[in-house]
Simulated assay, not measured.
Amino acid sequence: MTLDRKLHVAVLMGGWANERPVSLMSGAGVAEALEQRGHRVTRIDMDRQVAARLAEAAPDVVFNALHGVPGEDGTVQGLMDLMGLAYTHSGLATSVIAIDKQLTKNALVPHGIPMPGGRIVRSEELFERDPLPRPYVLKPVNEGSSVGVAIVTDASNYANPIARDAMGPWQEFAELLAEPYIKGREMTAAVVDFADGARALAVTELIPKSGFYDFDAKYTDGLTEHVCPADLPGRIADLCLDYALRAHKLLGCRGCSRTDFRWDEELGEDGLFVLETNTQPGMTPLSLVPEQARHIGMDYGILVETIIAAALRHFGREGAHG
């Protein structure tokens, strides 16, 4: 996939979410790759004047390298829709649903995609009783990159019930999603939109050197081993690829997405669960989508252009062929 002309691309990055540092790294990588391929790039570190800055830039297309709220939850997508801008990755409705873990379950589970059970709880409730039998997981409903995730076990130092002064996501969020803890292995699979349709790239197993695959493990070099392709039974690998592609399509994702899994080997196929689908996965040097693209022989610059080409096709703008 190549772009058939040189474009003016605004790379939107930064913002004020917890994932700002990751977004800046993603945006820098994208901008450098585009410049190396001869495109004109305007870097925009998002602030409250983002609409005026986008209007002033007047790009052919916006590469949305934002992560978290408000760049991944539909807010910026709605703004760019109003401005008539072509932009990469998913649109407003998909972004609203996919960033909300409960809405994602509502969209995927009825179609046969397995996800953990659980319920939304008020953080105040946690100081009175556990919402689920231990071990269980608490996570914000609409944050990414494992921001604010806590695993509550009998051995954890949160007390039982959780103490009000214990450090955890209940200090920051009024509501949390409580899910049963799924033991086992962590995997992920990326999906990219090509000219001839969406394809799942590969399955990567993520093996943290210690603890679990939290924010630091994701973005600190050396803290997590990436095994790509994952050493899995063929049926499990095929299911991961199938679920990732189906989630991408059911949610209406565009450009690329990445779906995360947990697998309890003792339960076989019944132990595989989708955790979430990321509509704007990272594009940093440590990120999983570029790594999987390399595995299938696609270098970083071609990956970036492929994502842009998908946006141009969606918005009916000339500039791509494949």
Score class of each variant (00 low, 15 high):
T2D: 11
K6P: 01
L7Q: 08
V9I: 11
V9W: 01
A10F: 00
G15A: 07
W16E: 11
N18A: 15
E19Q: 09
E19M: 08
S26G: 01
V30Y: 00
A31W: 00
L34E: 12
E35A: 08
H39K: 01
H39M: 07
R40Y: 14
D47I: 12
V50H: 10
A51K: 09
A51W: 13
A52T: 04
L66S: 02
G68A: 03
P70M: 14
E72V: 14
V76K: 00
Q77A: 05
M80W: 08
M80V: 07
L82R: 14
M83E: 10
M83Y: 15
T88V: 13
A93H: 13
T94E: 06
K105N: 09
A107T: 06
V109Y: 01
V109T: 04
P110S: 13
H111E: 13
H111Q: 13
P114Q: 12
M115A: 07
P116W: 06
G117N: 11
I120A: 11
L126C: 02
Y136F: 11
V137Q: 02
K139V: 06
V149E: 03
D154Q: 10
I162S: 03
R164K: 14
M167S: 11
G168M: 14
G168N: 13
W170V: 12
F173S: 05
E175I: 12
E175T: 15
G184W: 09
M187A: 11
T188Q: 03
A190L: 07
D196V: 14
G197I: 14
L201P: 00
T204E: 00
T204M: 01
E205I: 12
L206A: 11
L206P: 07
I207V: 15
F212R: 11
D214E: 11
T220P: 00
D221C: 10
G222Q: 02
L223A: 06
L223R: 08
H226M: 05
C228M: 12
L232N: 04
G234C: 12
G234V: 10
R235A: 13
D242R: 09
L251R: 07
G255E: 02
C256M: 11
D264F: 04
P281S: 01
P281H: 00
P285I: 05
L286A: 13
P290N: 11
E291S: 12
Q292F: 12
Q292N: 12
A293C: 07
H295G: 02
G297A: 03
V304A: 00
T306M: 03
R313P: 09
R317C: 10
